[in-house]
Structures are given as structure tokens and as C-alpha cells.
């Protein structure tokens, strides 16, 4: 039974990849849309990380884009200073980006994860704004980072295949983590922090684990992003970008992996699609229609479009997990 479910997941993943690659090689997905597809995958990776932090562990973070930016700048700095177009540099870059984001998350998380709900959100918001200022002035210390003029000359190494591979790996790790004993501890903290501490869960330790892993996802996504457009600007990592990721996981339903993925792709394609669909005369309306849609969706489906449910056949639950893992909502 279990083996069958795993096999089915593998078949689905391979089928999706083959279909997309065939469409690309037939020229049905042109390079522009390939880039959008890759970007959607990157957003999904980053959103999976925030879903672990907020959706599963219940720690409200408004500074996700800061870690995304740390990963992006670290990876870009590495590949730019090595000056090689070997694709393995990308692998090294995203690993370094992920590690650096994780280390910073650990150092920041240890003190600020003591804060609860909105206060944690505000502290991470403050951290995000401080990091944006650091990116803006980074050229004062390391000139090649470009500061507020933006960082150019990053080799364009990210291909759709890379994004897809990291994306699938990210899903597998997250899914197994959530159904492990660590995942149980994280969910118990989300449900009731005081009570889970009372039954012996080391909440500080598990909150930090959840936060660091989530930020590593952001760092890895940032590393891929840096090599996708070969240009980085601090405004790509400001407060609004943190909100973008947050609204992806909220619309997808907190604590739902499949919801996050579907919304990450739908959101990216909606924003780009509006650019294509709208006639030239009302193109300015694109960013008016988008928040209106957002408000309407929230008013109709306040618990997210999928309301925290998973698509069962994609995410088989282990036999031992009879109790639902994503029923209740986070903040009271």
C-alpha cells in the first residue's frame, strides 16, 4: 500500500516533468514563459519554507524576503567571483545561499522567536527592512554587490530543469519532515505553545529548527532567482515581497503543501497573464485588479482557497497518522 502510493507519486512527478520538457522542446512554451515557469517554481520553494514557519509551526514571519535576498546575494557573489559558467557553480551557489540564510536565521531566530504572534511578525518585519537597507548599502563593503544600483553580471545558469529538481526535492523533504516526530512537535507548538511545553516539547529548540529550515528554503530559492534573471536589486527583497509569499501560503491554506504549490503557480501566472490579457490602454489597471481579486478571494474563502486540505493522492499520509495534521487555524 505504502509502496504503491510512493510509486504513484514518482510517476506523477516524472510525467509532469516529461510533459513540460516536451512542450518546451516543441517550442510551445517559449523562453519568456519558461522563465515565468521557473520563477513560479522559485516562488513555490520560498513559499514552502514560509509554510513550514507559519503554516506548520505557527510563527508569524513578515521578513521572509530578507532570507530570500541573503541567499540570492550570497549565491550571486559566489558565482560572480568564481567567473565560470559551469552549471555546478549554481549548485554550490544555492547550497551556500541556503546555508548562509540558515545561519542568519539561527542567529536572529534565537532571540526573536521568544516573541509571540503579531510581535514576532513586527520584529521580523523590522529585520526585513534592516536587511533591505543592508542590501542598499552593501557596495560600501563589497563593491561587486552593487548596492542600490543593483548587481549585474551574474551568470544565467538557472534552467527550468534545475528549478524543477530543487522544487521536487524541497517538497519531498518538507513532506517527510512534517510527518516526522519533528513535524509533530512543530504542529503541537502551532496548536498551543504553552500546552506543548507542558507535555515536554522543547519549544525553543523546535521553533528554531522550523524557522531555520524554512529560511534555508528561502535562501535556496533566492540562489536560483539570482541566476535566473542575472540581475539583483534590493527592491526585489523589500517588505512587499515578504507579503507576496505570505499571501501565497494564506490563499493556499496554512499548513497545506499542495495548496501552497498550486497558488504559487496560479499567482505568478495570474500576474503575468494579466499583462498579456489586458489591452494596452488599461495595462495600468493590472495592479488595481490584482489586489481587488485578493480582497474578494479572502472575503469568499477566508481560510484559503483549499482551506488547509491536501490533495490526497499527491501527498500520501503514513499509515500511523490517522489524526489530521492541518485542521485548525493558527492564531487565535
Amino acid at each position: 500500500m505504502k509502496r504503491l502510493a510512493t510509486l504513484r507519486s514518482i510517476v506523477i512527478v516524472v510525467a509532469v516533468y516529461v510533459v513540460l520538457q516536451v512542450l518546451i522542446s516543441l517550442g510551445l512554451i517559449n523562453p519568456y514563459w519558461q522563465q515565468i515557469l521557473s520563477f513560479a517554481g522559485i516562488m513555490a520553494i520560498s513559499a514552502l519554507g514560509l509554510n513550514l514557519i507559519y503554516g506548520f509551526t505557527g510563527q508569524f514571519s513578515l521578513g521572509h524576503a530578507a532570507f530570500y535576498g541573503i541567499g540570492a546575494y550570497a549565491a550571486a557573489y559566489l558565482s560572480k567571483s568564481i567567473q565560470s559558467t559551469n552549471p555546478l557553480i549554481l549548485l554550490l551557489g544555492i547550497i551556500c545561499g541556503g546555508i548562509l540564510a540558515g545561519v542568519v536565521a539561527f542567529l536572529i531566530g534565537l532571540p526573536i522567536l521568544r516573541l509571540r504572534s503579531d510581535y514576532l511578525g513586527i520584529a521580523t518585519l523590522g529585520f526585513g527592512i534592516i536587511m533591505k537597507i543592508v542590501f542598499d548599502n552593501a557596495d560600501a563593503i563589497i563593491p561587486s554587490l552593487g548596492g542600490s544600483r543593483g548587481m549585474t553580471g551574474i551568470p544565467r545558469l538557472t534552467s527550468f530543469a534545475w528549478v524543477f529538481a530543487v522544487f521536487v526535492l524541497g517538497i519531498i523533504i518538507l513532506r517527510n519532515l512534517v510527518f516526522s516526530s519533528i513535524g509533530r512537535a512543530l504542529v503541537s507548538i502551532r496548536e498551543d505553545e504553552v500546552a506543548s511545553e507542558a507535555v515536554g516539547v522543547n519549544t525553543t529548540k523546535y521553533k528554531t529548527i522550523g524557522f531555520v529550515i524554512g529560511c534555508i528554503y528561502a535562501g535556496v530559492a533566492g540562489g536560483l532567482y539570482a541566476h535566473l534573471y542575472s540581475f539583483l536589486h534590493p527592491s526585489n527583497f523589500d517588505f512587499l515581497k515578504s507579503i507576496d509569499v505570505l499571501l501565497i501560503i494564506v490563499l493556499g491554506g496554512l499548513g497545506s503543501i499542495s495548496g501552497t504549490i498550486i497558488i504559487a503557480f496560479a499567482w505568478t501566472f495570474l500576474l503575468e497573464g494579466l499583462r498579456v490579457i489586458l489591452p494596452e490602454a488599461i495595462l495600468d489597471w493590472r495592479l488595481v485588479i490584482y489586489p481587488l481579486l485578493l480582497i474578494i478571494v479572502m472575503l469568499i474563502r477566508p481560510k484559503g482557497i483549499f482551506g488547509g486540505r491536501e490533495i490526497k493522492f499527491l501527498f500520501p499520509k503514513p499509515e500511523s497518522f490517522k489524526t489530521p495534521i492541518n485542521r485548525s487555524e493558527t492564531s487565535k
Partner: peptide, 9 residues
């Protein structure tokens, strides 16, 4: 999120 949407709008 609605407040954020309202702000952007």
C-alpha cells in the same frame, strides 16, 4: 491579507 490588498488597491 485583506488589509494588505486594500493598501495595494
Amino acid at each position: 491579507i485583506t488589509a494588505m490588498g486594500m493598501s495595494l488597491f
